[in-house]
């Protein structure tokens, strides 16, 4: 037989430094893009890299990022949430009408605002997990219904005259940092831990990775899905509440289109629409990428229409690159 004794066997599963390194790049790909953008923008305009402008960018994205964190968890279970923008609108008018001076203590006002999200989330979760509607259809239903409710509730008119305590939540600063940014940081850390280090979080991934296997493992898939939808809508309500404080007015049209921006942030950040993959670090980076591009183009006086076009192209390119990465394997 023709073979030599010193034949080197081929290593089938490699664990070399190279593959470790590419794993890290894989995970942080979006961060590399972000750093590249930061450098590019600061070269193009000297107005970009100032503490004030950077704070501005982060505050601008914080409202979308909060929603994106919720929708990331949903997408990981192979779901989707189209209703979050409408939740922002309904929360805005409801919370504003409970935020007039001398009406309720601040805590109660906040709870009323969040409960809007809680209720919508319960409905979404019920429709998806128990009534077994496809998530796209279920949340498209609540998307228009909830927006309708917001208009009905406010008669389409803004709700003004809000107490200072409340507007502080959206417009104020704590230790020099805008409050929405602090809220975002807290929620991001909390959700990151929830997803990576608790049972509930791991069950979210398991369901998205292989629902059948999750059921066989004894996971209560319905409750986990319900929880995820409730969590996401509550975060959307939180976002609406902060935004209402920021503009010091309840507006039924607030948050139109936010659901798509949030989904875009998640997807740019590497969340897989087929489920089972996604991270909060990625989603926040995704939101920052969108924010930096918008801000940069503002500073460079690019007109609004071009900004729209650019955003659309970035989403497509991001997902394209991601799919190339998968194909290379």
């Amino acid at each position: 037989m023709a073979h030599s004794s010193n034949q080197k066997p081929i290593k089938i599963e490699s664990n070399s430094f190279g593959s470790q390194f590419s794993k890290v790049i894989d995970k942080l790909g979006i961060i590399v893009v972000l750093i590249f953008l930061l450098i590019l923008m600061s070269l193009l305009t000297d107005k970009f890299l100032t503490p004030m402008n950077l704070t501005n960018v982060v505050r601008q994205i914080s409202f979308i990022a909060l929603i994106a964190i919720g929708v990331t968890s949903i997408i990981i279970t192979t779901g989707i949430d189209l209703s979050s923008g409408s939740v922002v609108g309904l929360t805005s008018v409801v919370v504003a009408s409970a935020a007039h001076p001398g009406q309720f203590p601040l805590v109660v006002t906040i709870l009323i605002g969040l409960s809007v999200g809680l209720v919508v989330g319960l409905i979404n979760g019920f429709l998806v997990a128990y009534a077994k509607l496809p998530p796209f259809i279920a949340t498209m239903g609540t998307w228009t219904t909830v927006r309708g409710l917001a208009l009905l509730y406010s008669n389409g008119r803004p709700v003004n005259d809000l107490k200072d305590e409340f507007t502080y939540l959206g417009g104020g600063r704590f230790l020099g940092v805008p409050v929405p940014i602090l809220v975002l940081i807290a929620v991001a850390i909390l959700t990151h831990l929830l997803l990576t280090s608790t049972r509930l979080g791991r069950h979210v991934f398991a369901i998205g990775g292989n629902e059948q296997a999750a059921i066989i493992g004894g996971i209560n898939v319905k409750i986990v899905k319900l929880a995820v939808y409730v969590y996401a809508s509550t975060l959307a309500a939180l976002s609406g509440l902060l935004l209402t404080g920021r503009i010091a007015s309840g507006q039924s049209a607030l948050g139109v289109g936010y659901e798509l921006d949030a989904i875009a942030a998640a997807v740019i950040g590497g969340t897989s629409l087929t489920g089972g993959i996604g991270s909060i670090v990625g989603t926040i980076s995704g939101a920052l990428v969108i924010g930096v591009i918008n801000n940069g183009m503002d500073l460079l006086n690019v007109n609004m229409y071009w900004q729209q076009i650019a955003k659309g192209m970035i989403i497509v390119i991001a997902v394209f690159l991601d799919s190339q990465k998968k194909k290379a394997k």
Partner: peptide, 14 residues
């Protein structure tokens, strides 16, 4: 299997 989770997470799922 749940493809993007680890061996141990697969064994202890649920």
């Amino acid at each position: 299997p749940i493809p993007h989770m680890t061996v141990m997470e697969n064994i202890y799922v649920g």
